[in-house]
Design a protein around this nucleic acid. Structure first.
Length: 227
DNA sequence: TAGGCCATCTGGTCCT
DNA sequence: AGGACCAGATGGCCTA
């Protein structure tokens, strides 16, 4: 992990997300209509390096293009692709000095580790799939750290929205038992003077973000504001 | 060209 | 003993 990522982790709630949004587009956390078809990518990618080509050219991208059945073959293939310092199957390489059994064991361990990392990447892909950000061919795939940080914030945001809804339901129930039902025209969204929360507070972060058209930095400030 | 991100290898540690 | 997990090292690819 590099210094920037450490800083991101230390300041997840504000600066980190600011940074991530700036890097991954203002439609990060964009809901509804903007989801996938929203604002243009903040990463002006050339056609040759867009998301699609990135997937195809990056042979080791998560998702795994090989199964565990061909691990051994893949192992030596990857070793060849990686270059001289990974001489596990080359004369003079680390494994060359070891016995055949040790080498076999090492290759087996490597394959297992590779499989484990592929599983981890599959899980991260699954997480990316449910995180609301611009899933667009022209937008770079979220990095691992960005995926985790955005997922965390998304969960916090959903929890906040849920809490708002609970408070709203509690308020409505209270109003029905104590006084007459609230007329439709006086629905909470239009009754800041009566309803304990402001209309802006009623709109969940998700709703706010879905209609937001400002800069990413102010978007996340917006979402982090307490009602 | 530097920096970010990634996949892989590797050795160590812990757990079953 | 074998497998899972982890962190460090390394090199490749891509972008600004």
């Amino acid at each position: 992990m590099n210094v920037n990522e450490e800083n991101l982790l230390k300041s997840i709630s504000n600066d980190a997300l600011l940074d991530l949004t700036q890097r991954y587009g203002q439609s990060a956390f964009g809901f509804g209509p903007s989801h996938g078809t929203g604002s243009p990518a903040r990463f002006p990618l050339t056609p040759a390096t867009d998301f699609i080509s990135g997937q195809t050219t990056k042979s080791n991208e998560s998702g795994g293009e090989h199964t565990s059945d061909d691990d051994d073959a893949f192992d030596s293939l990857e070793s060849r692709k990686r270059g001289p310092s990974f001489g596990d199957d080359k004369p003079g390489g680390p494994l060359a000095k070891k016995s055949k059994e040790q080498r076999s064991l090492r290759l087996s361990i490597n394959a297992r580790e590779r499989r484990r990392m592929h599983d981890l990447n599959d899980a991260l892909d699954g997480l990316r799939a449910v995180i609301p950000y611009a899933h667009s061919p022209s937008v770079r795939k979220l990095s691992k750290i960005a995926t985790l940080l955005l997922a965390k914030n998304y969960i916090l945001m959903q929890a906040q929205a849920l809490e708002e809804m609970r408070r709203l339901v509690a308020y409505l129930n209270q109003g029905q038992t104590i006084s007459s039902p609230i007329p439709t025209a006086l629905a909470p969204f239009g009754q800041a003077a009566v309803y304990p929360f402001s209309s802006s507070a009623l709109a969940t972060c998700a709703e706010k973000c879905s209609t937001y058209s400002g800069t990413p930095s102010s978007l996340f400030k917006h979402c982090n504001d307490k009602p």
